[in-house]
Design a protein around this nucleic acid. Structure first.
Lengths: 190, 190, 190, 190
DNA sequence: TATGAATGAGGTTTCATTCAT
DNA sequence: AATGAATGAAACCTCATTCAT
């Protein structure tokens, strides 16, 4: 049985990777206005090559967002094996926060909202988060009405808030995360 | 020598007001990509008139953001007279959230960050929030390390997060605000 | 009663005219591949100005074709007053041929086919030609089955054919027109 | 030293044939804008293979036009043996018209004008037509001043004209051909 | 030899901004 | 002061052509 779809050429794979990395950086720095030209230059390829890999700028955005989501889902999946459900959720929170903090791409989500591929990946991410939260809920570590989506949105929001302030006080993010996690905890257990 | 700041003609004032209102709507709907042309059309003026009032698109953005901040600061000032500091803070939180929820303009802040006028207004807003929070802190209603800026950022972020999700579950925002306020509360008082 | 739509500014009219003239020349020289940039440069305006007058390249093509058709229809209308129907038709033929010969834009018709404005103008042109042919038919100067459309297509085709040959033998066009007109004549009258 | 013109490998021949056929179809459908990519796909080969056979798009166009001309010349040559010179010319006319009608590639001639190979083939075609016309002229079937080139151009033009009209009235082409042939006939013989 | 990824010039269109009216 | 036409710098995208595999 032959391989289902001939694997990409070596340089094609390299370029695709460079492009996604370059796009992440440019988007993080310049927002959605980052230009294809700049992304291509940073990736060290010609403008047309971008088009070959991603038929449209939106498609590139979707790929970046999808990659981000996939990595977060992988983290969640890995933490499902952790013995302490509450600690696992906290670690997921801080890992997610740190990842988002390094590069805030929240504004991209609006663009990629329509993309069906991204929708599927987000579904997977939310399901993974829900699994984590479910275990923590069963262990009484969080409020009974908290969902995986809630956790994702709140951490994303927190990071975004820290980003929106000009001066980067380094303790802000952990402090805010602590506030959030305190809020998520089961009220009666406090 | 003419008087230093001649008052605007009546119709000029009207146009300025229409423009700010139109800009808020367009920015809320189309994001930062809202075009000057669309804003002008919605305001019922010609494109050139926009530039008579705001030399630059960024200046218009700054004016919109400044207006928003000013209104929020006014709310905070008003609540300083309230007898119950904790309740006043909660009301400020929910009023702010509702205002932001109606029109999420968070993305504009990045653009207007450099503007010195906006910086001053933000300063005023944060000071007003700090006054509210200070009273609540003194009353033991919130953690001792919480600042006015913290409250503003967290509520702003939460609203933004709710906006970023496609399906608009109506109970999300109040639930998240509750989580936030729980997190802000003095831990030992719970 | 005010004028229905404020007249274009003087320079706008000038630019529109220059643009149409420039487009005709560029299209005649380079075919449909004539670029907007070249047309703008020849007209002495910026590229963006083209877009202000014609939202799309196809719209510009349609305007050029429409202008051409309008001028031909005017010629036909004028000849309707001529006393000799047969001579009038011949003159229409040669005038049309000469006009097309100066600038062969046949290839543009395919592009502008979908445009409803052009369709209306073509209708008018064909009707004018039909009126001319009708008079000639009644006078027995042409076959009974010939229509205005026939005459237009045949003369257009003939000119196009002459254009398709590299060496521009100057007597070709009149000779071919003679052949066509001979063919159009009433057989039994020969 | 290898033989000067090594014969093509069997699959290379197959590819060349497929490419020419695909090009004819694509050009007929999309005009000169038909892309190499589409032609390659229709031929079932990769884009790069196109350039192995035809160094340039223009070269491919030239090959298509040349093939067309060659086939027409073969028809003319065959008809030279026909006993009735007038009938032979008429048949050449209608055969040519039908061939062109199936696929109108007139617009390609402009592109291939510069190609020396095409020039030679066109020479051959025109010579063959001239031979046919010469016999008809000697037999008094056509005007004394008509040339082979005339016949070719007029029939080509007529077909093109019929193509340029949106609604495909099926009787137009024969009617126009009749008009043309009437016009070509010796005037005094009518 | 065939493939298809990479190239990069060039196309159309958009839009903030300037300026004649 | 207001208008809207003109400007021109990018933006995105296409496609003939080259070249690594």
């Amino acid at each position: 049985m032959p391989p289902p779809a001939r694997p990409l050429r070596a340089d094609a794979v390299r370029n695709r990777t460079s492009l996604l990395a370059a796009a992440e950086i440019e988007f993080a720095q310049r927002g959605s206005d980052a230009s294809i030209a700049d992304i291509a230059e940073r990736a060290g390829v010609a403008k047309g090559t971008v088009f070959r890999h991603f038929a449209t700028k939106d498609e590139l955005v979707a790929a970046v967002v999808g990659g981000r989501f996939t990595r977060l889902a992988a983290v969640a999946d890995r933490l499902l094996d952790s013995p302490d459900p509450g600690a696992a959720l906290l670690e997921f929170l801080s890992a997610t926060a740190e990842s988002l903090h390094r590069q805030d791409l929240a504004f991209l989500q609006t663009v990629s909202e329509g993309d069906p591929g991204v929708a599927g990946i987000r579904e997977r991410l939310h399901a993974a988060a829900e699994a984590l939260v479910g275990r923590a809920r069963d262990a009484g570590a969080v409020r009974p009405d908290v969902t995986g989506t809630d956790v994702l949105l709140l951490v994303c929001a927190t990071v975004h808030a820290v980003h929106s302030v000009p001066d980067p006080a380094p303790d802000r993010l952990p402090r805010y995360l602590e506030i959030i996690t305190d809020g998520l905890r089961h009220p009666s257990r406090a």
